[in-house]
Nucleic acid binder design. Structure first.
Lengths: 329, 329
DNA sequence: ACTAACTCTGACAACGTTGTCCAACTCTTC
DNA sequence: GAAGAGTTGGACAACGTTGTCAGAGTTAGT
């Protein structure tokens, strides 16, 4: 910029004015400065600018895994809203590791992002208090923040699961299994709650061997499923607590002699092409991202001191076939 | 930092030394400074630091769509390499719009990212020349750069397609259709070339009505497919030029009276669960991201003036069933 | 012709760091 | 106790911008 000013024979500030299209510069001067800019291939250094203005026009997004088909549309939605607000997006994956989450969040804060959108991996976010007090707007998505009061946008996991299980009950099932993720994960616990509620609402008992919470790797899911389907009174239907469970269940059930009804939490591509097409409770993944980002920018534009909001988006049952299979006699 | 220095009763630079763990500070002083830091909740402002050191420890990634199942693992791989090199990641989606691509790239450059990884949407990247000369390392992935000589990491699209089509020929097919993306997209053109080559290698003629390039929305693909499958001499096999085409083809073919063999470019989740399981030519999407990022950081660590590299990663044929269907008589 | 108001321009400080360099102090060593 | 070496600390400029303010020049009104 200094060079441009020298070449155009004007002051530093005049160049700044031209670059920012501020009023009060003669067309003649503008032209001279423009010429110098073009000749020198000058591009304003935004880092320096933002250092001065104390706004970085960037937000940080921390989620579990960028490559996860559930989070990818979420991050895309966040990106779209950020772009609409003229902000750039830092992204990072926590890989479900609280330490990595914190590391990323603090790195973003050190870069002085204007705001943060976090899919929490940990359950204690008090480390964020100084940052929030320093003015970093923060919105949690998909799972609630731990031990602090903050904005969050969640899916109605319990309600969605209740609907899914009720759907199975409505189709005649009485012995319904549930395989969920680790109980420490909030969404997993909420879905288990929905399962219990639906069963209770229908006056059905739940045997302890019908539900299981834990890692959702194929091996464990296979093992649990095998035990659910064996014995004198096997379950006739299964509610799968997330899409990884659903996929493994589809694989196992396709080789099972007796038809077993299946409803899964989370939609996935091609669910309608499988045999039978898979009935799911679908979350609005872009909706989560969009709502969170919109809330964030609302905060950034003044609403910083309003009380934290908690949005809960509904989940939608999509009947496709697998959830409508009647109980085997 | 000024406040910390004042509170600890030391000079500014001493605080800087403590924060950066530079040697030459008495343990006693370190302790005093640390106490002040903790008391004030001080966090170093990385933007300012990076302004001074002229390294931002961040790279920009521009791709077509963050939410696309092909690009999501790529971006995750880039992120992993970036993290390993201590860099943060800016991401943005071009939505296949050259103007948006340029906008994003220039915004990243204005933020003075150390490097760029770009999945090009446009075919003219001369606008990047000043940036590259200014020292922004740039690597193109998945598609080649337009009209400039730069590092790039590509998939062997022609070779992969040749293998896929040869596979169909080996199973007895003689009339093979090809539905590809818009001819302006480099990967699409390369795949068409592979199709031609495989047919030529086998001494088979190609009728003009057997292949079609254009938007890969379901409507067009359905229409093209309908015409391929009708007439007196319909094709007995189809090569689908990308995963969107493949998915639509699976839907259509599942309702088609005659079995038609199918090989698709790009793997997708659950391809093995469909009926029949879908044979694909799989790209190494994380491999593309990883190689590109590694190349980028190699450039950043000194190899800036070596000649541009062009890496070509092989594609792998995964036979699952749909590509092994023999021609209907 | 004088003042008032307005337009345009640039000097300077500031944003929050780090690099450079020098001063002061503490040890050795003779 | 003086010279030399080593350690510790801080003043200052710089990175590339923008905000503030005041000065210079122009126009308009009396």
């Amino acid at each position: 910029m200094k060079d441009v000013a020298a070449r155009a024979g004007v002051g530093l500030k005049t160049v700044s004015r031209v670059v920012n299209e501020e009023p009060g510069v003669t067309p003649d001067t503008v032209a001279r400065v423009q010429a110098a800019i073009d000749a020198l291939g000058f591009r304003r250094n935004d880092s320096a600018r933002l250092l001065r203005t104390r706004r970085t026009a960037s937000v940080g997004l921390v989620l579990e895994d960028l490559a996860d088909p559930f989070y990818a549309p979420l991050s895309r939605a966040v990106e779209d809203v950020a772009r609409a607000n003229g902000a750039l997006l830092f992204t990072g994956s926590s890989a479900e590791d609280p330490r990595r989450e914190q590391e990323l969040v603090l790195a973003f804060c050190a870069r002085r992002v204007d705001g943060l959108i976090v899919v929490p991996a940990g359950d204690d976010h008090r480390y964020l208090i100084p940052e929030i007090e320093a003015g970093v707007a923060t919105v949690f998505v998909d799972r609630p923040a731990g031990r602090i009061d903050a904005d969050m946008v969640l899916t109605d996991n319990a309600g969605g699961t209740r609907d899914g299980v009720a759907h199975l009950i409505a189709h005649g099932h009485r012995r319904i299994g549930f395989i969920g993720d680790q109980p420490g994960i909030h969404t997993a616990a909420e879905r288990l709650r929905g399962y219990r509620e639906a069963m209770a609402d229908a006056g059905l008992p739940i045997r302890p061997e019908w539900y299981s919470m834990g890692p959702t790797n194929p091996e464990r899911v296979r093992a649990v499923l095998a035990s659910l389907l064996s014995g004198p009174e096997p379950v006739t239907a299964l509610f799968a607590g997330n899409n990884r469970v659903t996929v493994t269940a589809v694989r196992v059930l396709s080789h099972h002699p007796r038809p077993v009804a299946l409803v899964g939490f989370d939609d996935f591509e091609l669910a309608d092409l499988l045999d039978p097409p898979v009935t799911v409770v679908a979350q609005d993944s872009p909706g989560l991202g969009r709502s969170a980002a919109q809330l964030l920018f609302r905060r950034l534009e003044g609403g910083a001191d309003a009380a934290p909001e908690r949005l809960e988006l509904p989940a939608r049952l999509i009947a496709r076939g697998s959830g409508e299979i009647p109980p085997a006699p």
